[in-house]
């Protein structure tokens, strides 16, 4: 192969690799389906009441909540897996009063909207990457029905 032939081949290779790198980078920026878990949790200082369908919270999450919040006990009211796809908001009813809408706000950010008794109560944005790494997005508030107690909507990655 002549010198000019080698040059042309090398530059063609360089251009091809450049385009391939660029396309790979663009494709990598698109969000993949994300497996999430939404849990409705009740926080109280009282023991687990008899006759209510409450589950004990897994110890790791319970300790995390105990470190940050004042309540001694945390019980799981409901849990719902969510597979989040791009351009497709997911609605999840956590209780008869509480519903959430989860969607991609953009390629890298998850948006969680809370609806209490049908009213849009608040919105939290959280990085999808942070959720994948084990961080939590929590919307919480005082329990209107029982003074001193609290409810928590915890969004996390759905890891086993």
């Amino acid at each position: 192969m002549t010198r000019i032939g080698k040059q042309r081949l090398a530059w063609a290779l360089l251009l091809s690799l450049g385009w391939a790198t660029l396309l790979a980078g663009t494709a990598g920026a698109a969000p993949a389906d994300l497996g999430l878990k939404a849990r409705l949790i009740w926080g109280t200082d009282e023991p687990k009441p008899e006759g209510k369908n409450l589950q004990d919270l897994e110890p790791a999450l319970r300790e995390k909540l105990r470190k940050v919040f004042k309540w001694k006990n945390y019980f799981k009211v409901s849990e719902h897996p969510i597979t989040l796809a791009r351009h497709q908001p997911t609605h999840v009813r956590l209780s008869h009063k509480c519903e959430i809408e989860v969607s991609y706000a953009d390629d890298a950010t998850i948006e969680v909207k809370l609806f209490g008794e049908g009213k849009h109560t608040g919105t939290v944005h959280k990085s999808a990457e942070a959720l994948r790494k084990g961080q939590l997005a929590i919307i919480a508030g005082d329990d209107k029905e029982k003074y001193g107690d609290a409810w928590f909507v915890v969004i996390s990655a759905n890891t086993p």
Partner: peptide, 17 residues
């Protein structure tokens, strides 16, 4: 070199009610 979305580096929370 793969481009990262700016939001991935931005503060991870935005709240409104």
């Amino acid at each position: 070199l793969r481009p990262r979305h700016p939001a991935a580096l931005a503060p991870q929370v935005q709240v409104d009610s």
